[in-house]
């Protein structure tokens, strides 16, 4: 559904994303993981049109979208959320979601009604008429999700929707994401907390220092020595293995 081919971008000599290629199959929950500063959000920025890559191309539903403006990409059916959830502060939750609903609904009434149905799906029904600025972090993440969902995307890019939530909130959020996929929306999510992703996604890509270093089922990927080293530092895999062996012995 979404394909990136040999995408690279650098900022002032630093290669933030280096020759990355990845694919997201339709109907899946795919995840993109990697340690802090690996370039995940930068790659997301390229996929969603906020950044133009120095090299490489991105295609969505068979159509070339490299360098296309974000709002155009959104109109094709790919929407993203932001890591730092920032609601439209001056407006209520309902009005916030309606901004997304308006993409396919010109009428104010229809958009507000649609916003209500979206709120139900992400568990924000009780807070529809609250000012968005009063929401907690968890509430803001839900709102971020709701707004994106309201544009009725085919592919949803989620930038760390689970980060900053406590375990209780994470376990509440996970079924919401799963139900979105079950509703027919493909999901690509960035997380640096591996645990959360393990249960949710079927396929995972690992980014480190701007390069994709591994891919596969989450359970396999997390056993990959390169991945372990990326997270825990050089030599970590070796140490883990020897300490594991000693424990067995």
């Amino acid at each position: 559904m979404l394909q990136a081919r040999h995408v690279s971008i650098s900022f002032g000599g630093l290669k933030a994303v280096d020759d990355a290629s990845l694919a997201v199959p339709a109907g899946s929950i795919t995840s993109l993981i990697g340690p802090n500063g690996a370039g995940k959000s930068t790659l997301f920025g390229i996929l969603s049109g906020f950044l133009e890559p120095d090299a490489g191309s991105v295609s969505f539903l068979g159509q070339e979208v490299t360098g296309l403006a974000p709002h155009r990409i959104c109109r094709l059916g790919m929407t993203r959320t932001f890591q730092l959830a920032q609601p439209f502060a001056g407006q209520t939750v309902r009005e916030n979601i309606a901004v997304g609903s308006h993409l396919h609904r010109a009428q104010r009434k229809a958009a507000l009604a649609h916003a209500e149905s979206i709120a139900l799906r992400v568990g924000l029904s009780g807070r529809l008429d609250r000012p968005a600025r009063d929401l907690t972090i968890a509430g803001r993440k839900r709102l971020e999700l709701a707004r994106a969902l309201a544009t009725e995307p085919k592919l949803l890019l989620l930038d760390e929707v689970l980060a900053g939530l406590n375990p209780q909130e994470v376990s509440e959020m996970s079924p919401v994401i799963r139900s979105i996929r079950d509703g027919g929306v493909t999901v690509l999510m960035i997380e640096h907390v591996m645990q959360a992703v393990m249960n949710l996604s079927e396929h995972t890509w690992v980014l480190n220092n701007g390069q994709l270093i591994a891919e596969g089922k989450p359970a396999d990927v997390t056993r990959d020595p390169r991945v372990i080293e990326a997270y825990l530092g050089r030599g970590a895999a070796e140490r883990l293995r020897t300490s594991g062996n000693e424990a067995h012995a």
Partner: peptide, 20 residues
């Protein structure tokens, strides 16, 4: 709709762009 878009741009241009 236009007003909703305009105030969305006022409050956060990037988020608004992501919403089309």
């Amino acid at each position: 709709r236009y007003g909703a878009w305009l105030t969305a741009v006022r409050d956060n241009e990037d988020s608004a762009a992501a919403l089309g």
